[in-house]
């Protein structure tokens, strides 16, 4: 990771965090579709970053968001899980010819088809974990399924739009 990417990553951390807790916290479509855009930040983190630093970044990110959501530990647990699974999923899901150096796996760099199959399962795991922890103690499991599916779709679409608008091709974030 070169110094430019490093600085942009730190900047991106605060930007995603601020947008999540001040804007997207209040955006819930139809009462079921939540937008957890900060997961996209972890998903499109530069590939050469190892799992351990990524998990620590996820932990800090999840914990800060939890403080504002009053859901202590819930975002943290699900985001660390995503960070843990990301490396193995990337290894399974390598495109032909491998990854280029210093290229974040964004939709612009990798193509829509690849990004769809890469992001959807991880988003699904994150949302399912989150809503399952939230559900413990109540008895409407159907709500977990509905919320998970609608939120995955909503977060994914927001993620695509964000990358289209604010990211450049073949350049770090």
């Amino acid at each position: 990771m070169n110094s430019r990417n490093f600085i942009l990553s730190i900047f991106g951390f605060f930007l995603y965090f601020a947008v999540q807790v001040f804007v997207l916290k209040n955006v819930v479509l139809f009462g079921t579709a939540f937008s957890f855009l900060y997961v996209i930040y972890i998903l499109i983190f530069p590939i050469e970053v190892k799992t351990i630093p990524l998990m620590i970044i996820s932990f800090i990110m999840g914990f800060s968001i939890d403080m504002f959501y009053d859901t202590l530990g819930m975002h943290t647990a699900s985001l660390v899980l995503v960070a843990f699974l990301r490396k193995s999923w990337l290894n399974v899901h390598t495109p032909t010819g491998g990854f280029d150096d210093n290229t974040p796996p964004t939709v612009l760099n990798m193509g829509f088809g690849w990004f769809l199959t890469y992001a959807l399962p991880l988003l699904f795991i994150h949302h399912l974990t989150f809503f399952f922890i939230d559900y413990i103690g109540s008895d409407y499991y159907l709500l977990v399924i509905i919320r998970t599916f609608s939120s995955v779709v909503f977060t994914f679409m927001l993620g695509i739009v964000t990358q289209m608008l604010f990211y450049k091709k073949k350049r770090g974030i």
């Binding site: 799992t51 351990i52 998990m55 202590l72 530990g73 943290t76 647990a77 660390v80 490396k87």
Partner: peptide, 21 residues
């Protein structure tokens, strides 16, 4: 196994936070 151990440690902290909160 360091990745897995750190993963378990972080998740344990998170679950402890959920339970205690």
């Amino acid at each position: 196994l360091r990745v897995f151990i750190i993963f378990i440690a972080l998740e344990t902290i998170a679950i402890w936070l959920i339970v205690s909160y």
